[in-house]
């Protein structure tokens, strides 16, 4: 409720080929010592980028201004910190395409209106190669048609139905939806023996 439908995201892509990227790498814990999410983009992949000495994809000028991050498998594993998608969003990413995503990360993305879609490994490889060759091209993540388009072709994309419908319906900000249940919340609670201490 009150959130805008997310039907299609298009923009330039950025390719991050490493698998199993955890949320500690996306945003190291020592930068979470604050009570808001403001300014988190400054610390996005900060340690990986320092170690890559300018060679990290996020510092590659060919990918500058990219809004679609293309990743490998199990992206966003580990800590539940919403600081991870927040820092990616504040950097400018609006959608993620990968082989697979960790569950809590994916849920956090949906709650921020950021789609995560998966491709077959071969298609993902083709997409990555295409972006690497022509980083200026426009990539489109189409939730309605369930596909990802780039210059070399259109690939069928998978997305969990609940995530897809919440984004398409504009109900990804769940608070309002949950509150609509009204008294059904209290009556569910009343049916649980532990609520009143047995």
């Amino acid at each position: 409720m009150g959130s805008d439908p997310v039907v299609r995201v298009s923009g330039r892509g950025c390719v991050l080929r490493t698998h199993d990227i955890d949320t500690d790498r996306i945003i190291p814990a020592r930068f979470m010592r604050q009570v808001t999410f403001e300014g988190l983009e400054k610390y996005l992949f900060v340690d990986d980028r320092a170690q890559a000495k300018g060679e990290h994809p996020l510092d590659d000028e060919r990918f500058e201004g990219a809004s679609i991050l293309v990743v490998g498998r199990n992206f966003g594993c580990g800590s539940s910190r919403e600081h991870a998608p927040q820092s990616l969003m504040r950097h400018g990413f609006r959608a993620f395409v990968g082989e697979s995503f960790a569950e809590i990360f994916l849920g956090n993305c949906v709650a921020l209106g950021l789609p995560c879609v998966t491709l077959e490994p071969a298609d993902l490889g083709t997409l990555m190669d295409s972006i690497d060759l022509e980083p200026a091209q426009e990539i489109a993540v189409d939730l309605e048609r369930q596909c990802v388009r780039c210059r070399v072709g259109t690939f069928a994309a998978q997305q969990a139905e609940d995530a897809r419908s919440r984004l398409l319906d504009g109900t990804w900000d769940a608070t309002g939806v949950l509150l609509e249940a009204g008294d059904a919340i209290e009556s569910t609670a009343a049916g649980l023996p532990y609520i009143e201490g047995f």
Binding site: S80, R81, E82, N108, A111
Partner: peptide, 10 residues
Amino acid sequence: FGIGTSQVRD
């Protein structure tokens, strides 16, 4: 369940 901050709000 481990949850993110938006779900803590929910």
